[in-house]
Design a protein around this nucleic acid. Structure first.
Lengths: 223, 223
DNA sequence: ACAATAATTTAGGTTCACCTAAATTATATT
DNA sequence: AATATAATTTAGGTGAACCTAAATTATTGT
């Protein structure tokens, strides 16, 4: 039924996409948490999205939702808008990387394809946003991502920061302060079995930092 | 009741403001036409806006609506957003003046005060948009406008174009073609009593043009 | 295996902003 | 002044996207 993709539907698809990236179907509860709405409301919407033609999600009771091809294309369109906008806000209007997320969350739903094309061109068709996150291409293909969580590294391993999660401004300000930004190299000095903390030497920083899983699961690196 | 100004309410206030500029209260029918909705829906919304606290409009049955102070401030905020955005799109993204209106109509409702401040600064706090329309100041005061419709001029009068209506792309393309843009000088060569047509010599153009009231009522000039 | 707990769904609202059709009120014509 | 016409309002919907409370289904610990 939704030949019109409302703002709300776009948000559902975007979050289902992100939850699907971790391998499994997006659960009702996880979606409710991320969308800040009641689980019961999510059930209703998933049923609607699954029964629309074309179906945007694949949904089996109690087993969460997965995107169909059309649903994935729609999700990638929103994500492309979001990441291009974040890049644009930083590059053109001097926003810092912790300030762009909420602004992009509102703008992503209202810009035209023309606007998208114009900022993409003005920015030189970037492949990553200011947080290092990959930008879907104009034909809505998500480039492959080799990076893995910083949390998966162990003592003496070295790697390069590729991207960080963009949705927590406080975390972003902290990461900037300790120099953990895309393309910076780092080395693991110690791994603690008990709490999963990592002691890390960051390229260009005098002293080591100790980061917990809350942080290291949101930073992604390449070897 | 609306301590939250929905997109829809913002649109009502903006259009009531523009209708009020012509001296009289905004009628139910005129609003319905401009908002592309049924007159009955307008009545409902005007009642709501009049009964909200603070009241955003002054409304008496069958006599149309006028903005209250809070309503006017809210309207000017939307208009400031719109006109700054139009200026930004033209200056920064290379849009032409006939392409910006619909994009700004969507963006005006979602940008933050921070975004507004950033583009205002980047543009050097402009006082007019690309169509010459005055931009309300940051403290939401509309600068006074001395201009009058081109349609009010008569044979041998000369004037400078100050602004043109921004909402009809086809008209804007035509005006650009014949050189009728802000700050251009022109002289009335003839006025026709029968149809109100004006024959006009536009500065920098070889031949005169004849414009009907549909056009001359949407171009504003200063002596 | 069975109860306790957690996750999910169903059922029955609500609000917002629109709609149509019918009734009413204003305005204009003669 | 009476009537035709136009503008406006009332009344009674609708669909989208939420909500809460209760019921159901899954999962987990012992």
């Amino acid at each position: 039924m939704p030949e019109i993709l409302t703002q709300s539907i776009q948000d559902y698809l975007k979050h289902i996409y992100k939850l699907n990236e971790n391998g499994d179907a997006a659960s009702t509860n996880d979606l409710a948490t991320r969308l800040n709405i009641a689980p019961a409301s999510v059930t209703g919407m998933l049923q609607k999205l699954a029964n629309s033609k074309p179906a945007l999600v694949l949904y089996k009771k109690h087993q969460g939702a997965t995107l169909t091809k059309p649903g994935e294309k729609a999700a990638l369109e929103v994500i492309r808008h979001h990441r291009l906008l974040e890049t644009f806000l930083v590059t053109t209007l001097g926003y810092s990387w912790d300030e762009v997320h909420s602004e992009a969350d509102k703008l992503e739903h209202v810009i035209s394809e023309d606007f998208e094309a114009r900022i993409a061109k003005a920015l030189g068709n970037p492949s990553r946003d200011p947080h290092g996150e990959l930008i879907p291409t104009a034909d809505l293909v998500m480039p492959s991502d080799e990076s893995r969580p910083l949390a998966s590294l162990r003592t003496d391993e070295a790697a390069t920061v590729k991207r960080v999660s963009d949705d927590d401004p406080a975390l972003l300000r902290h990461l900037r302060e300790i120099g953990v930004v895309p393309e910076v190299k780092l080395t693991i000095k110690n791994y603690s079995e008990f709490d999963g903390n990592l002691t890390i030497k960051v390229e260009g920083q005098k002293s080591n930092v100790v980061l917990g899983k809350e942080v290291t699961s949101k930073v992604f690196v390449d070897k």
